[in-house]
């Protein structure tokens, strides 16, 4: 009955009777590039020990030794909050040498979802009385399609004593901030605060019980910057890489 159920749910995999399928759930902390502590009267922390959760599925293939040393995985996760922010300024619409008008904007990354595809191999195994331990290494690609942003903006006229509601719309990208031709009274970020695709390396320590339940601790590091540094020029960007630590549980379906 169990295998009938699994076959119905995961039909395409039913034909691969020799595979192991595992499901995982975990808590994570993701260290992202951060902008320097906020300027001005109040110093706001921009450290980025961002917590999150993720869920995944893994397929493990038997090698010649029948020990299931090679795996492929897919996972989906969410990072709840970040402190990555970018500040932008440029000439406001209608600025003249006589009228010094400047547009200021700030973008904040509030959180994001990510998915990962990767491969892993068990490179060492050892046993204790209660658990089978394994050490695995691999890598993959992170996709960040959904980023939750907050964008704020205002104009300043040096000859006025207060900030002004922008009379035009503005667009921001790695070339800076400029007037938009398509909308008014708003401001938007055309680029992503985090790049959509980032390759990474991952190592993992697994402890498996005889019943097929596993606890794991893993760490992954990005292989290229997860941000476009041009977007943060003048923002004292600290670091460029993605680093994530995860711990959770896995269970073998079959």
């Amino acid at each position: 009955m169990k295998y009938l159920f699994i076959s119905l749910i995961i039909l395409p995999l039913g034909v691969f009777a020799q595979l192991h399928l595992q499901i995982s759930g975990d808590f994570s902390v993701t260290f992202l590039p951060s902008t320097a502590a906020g300027r001005g009267a109040t110093v706001n922390s921009t450290s980025t020990d961002n917590s999150g959760v993720s869920f995944g599925a893994e397929l493990w293939f038997p090698g010649k030794s029948k020990k299931y040393n090679y795996g492929l995985y897919a996972r989906y996760g969410r990072v709840f909050s970040t402190r990555l922010q970018g500040n932008f300024s440029g000439p406001a619409a209608g600025a003249t040498p006589e009228s010094n008008r400047i547009i200021f904007a700030q973008t904040k990354l509030q959180g994001f979802d990510f998915s990962q595809l990767g491969a892993s191999a068990k490179i060492a195994r050892f046993s204790s009385p209660r658990f089978d331990w394994s050490f695995q290494a691999g890598g993959g690609v992170s996709f960040i399609p959904s980023q939750r942003l907050h964008v704020a903006g205002s104009e300043f006229h040096s000859d006025k004593d207060r900030l002004q509601t922008p009379g035009s719309g503005y667009e921001i990208d790695s070339n800076g901030i400029r007037e938009s031709a398509s909308f008014v009274n708003s401001i938007t970020l055309l680029d992503d605060m985090l790049l959509k695709v980032t390759p990474f390396l991952e190592i993992e320590l697994n402890a498996e019980s005889p019943g097929g339940i596993m606890a794991f601790l893993s760490a992954q590091i990005g292989l290229r910057p997860v941000v476009d540094p041009d977007l943060y020029q003048g923002n004292d960007l600290n670091g460029l890489l993605w680093f994530q630590i995860r711990t959770g549980a896995k269970g073998r379906l079959f």
């Binding site: 906020g38 300027r39 001005g40 009267a41 109040t42 706001n44 922010q85 500040n87 300024s89 010094n100 400047i102 200021f104 700030q106 704020a152 300043f156 040096s158 003048g234």
Partner: peptide
């Protein structure tokens, strides 16, 4: 005249 070199938002 705006004096600070790099005025920006804070939170």
């Amino acid at each position: 005249n705006i004096i600070r070199d790099n005025p920006a938002f804070t939170t």
